[in-house]
């Protein structure tokens, strides 16, 4: 059980969080990971309007002590992208569950959320 994670969010296996409101999912990086890997320096983002399939990369990031690619947990359409983090990636570190969100996806198949983890199933970072 990872007691540092908000219980109202769902989680992927790659240190990302997912907030589902209706058929819209917002994605970002969890705070315990942000704290450990230090400041994000580069971000590549998805494009608004882009169709994405489950498993496709929607964002790539590099922090001082980490580099990785995030896979979409959903098939759907990217309806919003947080372009502020492109110019200032450290916003992700400052406010990972708020201003540091990465993208919003309109879901085609809400059942895909069943593959995500609840906070108690996420291992310590």
């Amino acid at each position: 059980m990872n007691k540092d994670l908000p219980t109202n969010l769902l989680y992927n296996t790659d240190y990302s969080w997912v907030k589902i409101e209706g058929d819209i999912a917002t994605l970002g990086i969890i705070k315990p990971a942000c704290d450990k890997i230090e400041e994000f320096v580069f971000v590549k983002l998805p494009e608004k309007g882009q169709k994405i399939k489950k498993g496709e990369t929607y964002s790539s990031l590099e922090a001082i002590k980490w580099s990785g690619h995030l896979s979409s947990p959903f098939t759907g359409e990217i309806i919003e992208v947080n372009e502020e983090i492109f110019d200032e990636p450290s916003i992700i570190n400052e406010d990972p569950y708020g201003k540091g969100w990465i993208a919003k996806i309109k879901l085609e198949n809400e059942e895909e959320k069943n593959d995500l983890l609840t906070s108690e199933k996420v291992k310590d970072v």
Partner: peptide, 21 residues
């Protein structure tokens, strides 16, 4: 973060990336 040294001199540099665990 990611170097290997011999007598303070670098002999190996390493890079990583991660995807889906």
């Amino acid at each position: 973060i990611n170097d290997i040294l011999v007598n303070n001199k670098k002999i190996s540099g390493n890079a990583q990336t991660r995807k889906e665990g």
